[in-house]
Each structure stands twice: as C-alpha cells, then as structure tokens.
Simulated assay, not measured.
Amino acid sequence: MTATHSFSSLIPDVILDAVESTGLWSDSRIYPLNSYENRVYQIGIEEASPVIAKFYRPERWNEAQIREEHQTLLKLKAAGVPVVAPLEFSDESLLRHNDMYFCLSPRLVGQHPEADNLDQLYQIGELIGQLHKTLSTTPFKERISVSPLSQMDDAANQILTGRTLFGQSELAEELQLPEKLKPIYIRQIATLRDMCEASIKSYWPRQLRPIHGDSHRSNLMLHDGQFHLLDFDDCQNGVAVQDLWLHITQTENPRQQLSEIIEGYETYLPFETRELDLVDVFKCVRVISYTAWLQSRWHDPAFTKAFAWFGSEDYWINHLNELKNCELEWGQISR
C-alpha cells in the first residue's frame, strides 16, 4: 500500500528524536507494542529503565481532550489509584514533535488477568470501584459522553453505505458488505436497535459518570500483587457497567463471575443492578463498532497486516452470526 497514512512519517529516527527532545538519552532500542489506534513503543534509555512512548493518532482527539486524559491520570495517581500516568517534563505531560502529539510513561511489567479467576475478578471490581469513586465528583468536560443508539446508527450506516465514520470517503468495494447480505443485515440491525432502545427506555442513569471506557483484560496489568489500569485513550462520561461487563466471559452461567466483580466494586461504591439490563446494549454497540472501526482504518498498513482476514464473505457471514447471537443471548446477564 502506497497511500499516505497517519503514521507514515513515524520512522525510527523520528521516534528517537521525539523521545530525546525531553532531555532523556536513548540507547536506540525501539520495541513496538501492540497498538493499532495509536502507535506505542518501548524505548531503551541510557543508564535507566525503558520508557513507553505513545504517539496519538492525528485528528482523533483534540488537544483539550488529550490533556483531560492526562490530568485524570495524574489525579488518579495522586489519589493512590494504581494507574500508569504520563511522565511530566517541566510540568508538561503532553508533548509534540513533528506536529504529532505524544507522551512518555514508565514501563510496567506484569501479567494480564486470567479470564476465569474469581479472586482476580473481585480485585478488578475493587479497582474499578476505586476508580469511579475517585472520579465521581468531576465529570469530563472535554471527553465524549456515551450515546449507544447514535454510535450504533453511525457504525451500521457506514457498514451499509460504504462511507467511513471519519469523513465521506468511499471504502474499497472489497471491504464493503456484499449486496446480497445487506437485506439480512438491515433486518438484524433493526431488531437489535429496537431491543436496545427498549432497554434504554426501561432504565438509563440520570447522570453519567467518568469511566475508563475500554477496561478489557489487555488494559489491566498485575504488577507486584496489584492490578493497574492502563490506556485511558477511551475515557469518557458513561455508565458504571461499561467498565465491568467486559470481564464476564461465561455465557451459560455468568452469575458467579458477576457476583465477584460487583462484590469487589461495592467495596467502594454501591452498584445499581438495573444497569445490568444495559449490558446487551453495550455488547451490540461493541460488535457493530468493531467492524466499522476496521473498515475506517483500512488505509493504515498496520491494519492490513494484522487483520488480513477482514472483508471476505466469510468474515461478513461471521459478523452476521455474531449479531444474531446478540439477539439470542439477550438477557442472560440480567436474568
């Protein structure tokens, strides 16, 4: 692929120049970490521990939104919540090099949670409860607020029309939903949207709260016996259960997992059990938005390499099956 993309100028020399612009001296070791929305690298530092350099995808978040993310992390760190906050240089955490925003943070070594470990689920519930309690008095002013039906509509419209979420550019034909599957897709989306709308009408919190927004297992690290939350790139005003439901991995009998997570959470805050009716809503939005995200980012060579299977007819059939499962499994969490 020869098209220009957001990170085409981010070659090793530029990465090292950016890091060394802070006054740190690199030993020239660069190790790319798994990240597609942004670019993240472990950078070796002379006579010191490596640092993690995160380069923000241009035009995704504006400066005020990124600064609010950093201010939140620094506030959480000061309050004793185990997070990885950005390093500050002359009281500045948001840095800029070659018109690209970046930040540096300490390297954290550890393991991600085990999916079915009930003790760890309790600890994760505690951590998220601590996070929500610490942030409860200061809603985000710059970050987005969750809007499930709008997110679902936007993502589904992109998939149906072939126009990206980020502008009006047409997607390549091979990335689009095949015409013969569109009637099935339209019916399935309409069914799920009605179900989502009914759940939201039944219960929606009066006030949204600051949340992590993407607290899946890969964004948690067990370090020195304590879980730490990583990557606040999607922090937003949302619903408490958004930070909890991704850790429920059992579909046939999720109650035991759910009980441990909520018990840990309630160490810090009461949990509104009516929010469990919204889990299916957020699951639908995640399934649809993930496919739309892959489409929208296909101009980035990192996506074509990592998700080479995307866009085939088999992929679209599997996507439709996922959506059907969302319908068939509706209510299993809240029953």
Rank of each mutant, 00 (worst) to 15 (best):
R143C: 03
E197M: 13
K180L: 14
N219S: 00
T137Q: 13
I144S: 08
D231A: 10
L177N: 03
L177I: 09
P205M: 10
Q176I: 01
Q168K: 13
A240E: 02
R209F: 08
A190N: 02
P183M: 06
I189Y: 03
L177M: 15
P139D: 06
A156P: 07
Q176K: 11
S218E: 14
Q158P: 02
R163V: 14
L244F: 11
H223T: 11
E142G: 01
Q226C: 06
T161W: 00
Q168T: 12
P178L: 05
M152V: 07
R217V: 12
D153T: 07
E173V: 14
S218A: 14
P139C: 10
L220C: 02
V239W: 01
Y185K: 08
I211M: 08
D224L: 12
E179P: 02
L165H: 06
A155Y: 04
F140T: 01
Q207N: 00
I144C: 07
E197H: 14
F140L: 05
N219P: 09
D243S: 11
A155L: 04
I189M: 09
S202H: 13
M152P: 07
R163G: 05
C196T: 12
R143N: 02
P148G: 08
P183W: 08
G167H: 09
K201I: 03
C235A: 15
L222R: 00
C196E: 08
P178D: 07
S199N: 09
Q236I: 13
R187N: 10
S199H: 07
S169G: 13
D231C: 10
I184E: 13
K182P: 00
L181V: 08
S202G: 11
C196S: 15
N219V: 06
P210M: 06
S202L: 12
S218N: 12
D224E: 15
T138Q: 15
L171A: 15
S202W: 09
C196A: 15
Q176C: 15
K141L: 11
T164A: 13
